[in-house]
Computed example of a mutant assay.
Amino acid sequence: MKTNKSAFSLKEIYSKMEYYCAYQERCYKEVEEKLHSFSVNSSEKEEVLTYLIENNFINEERFAQSFVRGKHNYKHWGKNRIVNELKFRNISSRIITIALKEIPEATYLENFHQLAEKNWNNITERKGQKKNKKFVDFLLRKGYETSLIYEKLKELEAGS
C-alpha cells in the first residue's frame, strides 16, 4: 500500500527532513525538491527550510566541501565536472572556490595521472587517432582540464 505523503503532519515533516539532512549532506535545492514531494504549501516549506538552515541541518559550504571530496576521491572526477555539478545544484561561485580547496593539488595531479595511465593501457585500439580520441574523450567526461589531458597524451604517445 502506498502512503499518501500529504497526510504527514508538520511535526512529522520536520522529523523526516531532519533525518534526510542528517543521513547525508544535502544542498538547499535537494531539500527543497524533497519538501515538494510532501506537497506542503509555500509558507510551510519556507518555515521548514528556515528551521533546517538555522539548526545547521543545511549548510551549503559543508555540502560543497563534502561533495568535492567524495566525487574526487571515489569517482575520480576532475575540477570542471565538479564545478558544473555544483552549479547545477545552485551553489554559489564563492562557495565552489572554497570547496575546491578540499583537493590538495598534489593529490589531484596524482589521481589524474593514475587514471590517465590506467585508461591509456585499457584502450584496445592501436596507436593513432582513434586511441587518442577515446583517451581524450574519457578524461574530458571525467572533468579534467584540456591542458592537462593533452600534456599527458603527448607524454604517453612518446613513451609507447
Rank of each mutant, 00 (worst) to 15 (best):
A158W: 13
L109H: 14
K34Y: 08
S39F: 10
N59M: 08
S39R: 11
I96Q: 06
F63V: 02
N73C: 06
W77M: 14
N56Q: 15
E44I: 00
H36D: 12
S92R: 14
F8Y: 15
Y23D: 13
I53M: 07
V40D: 00
F63Q: 06
R126A: 12
K29N: 09
E155C: 10
A22E: 09
Q129I: 10
K134L: 13
I82G: 05
L156T: 06
V40G: 01
L100Y: 00
Y23A: 12
I58K: 02
M1E: 11
E12K: 03
K11D: 08
K5F: 13
Y74E: 11
A158T: 13
R81P: 00
F112W: 03
K154V: 09
K142W: 02
S147M: 07
F38S: 01
K127Q: 15
A158Q: 15
G128A: 07
N59H: 14
K16F: 05
T50I: 09
G70W: 05
N119F: 10
N111Q: 11
H113G: 00
M17R: 00
L52E: 07
V31W: 02
S43C: 08
S93A: 13
K127P: 11
N111R: 12
L10N: 06
N119M: 15
K87D: 01
E151M: 09
E110H: 13
I149L: 01
Y20E: 04
Y74P: 01
F138C: 06
E151G: 05
E110P: 00
E44R: 04
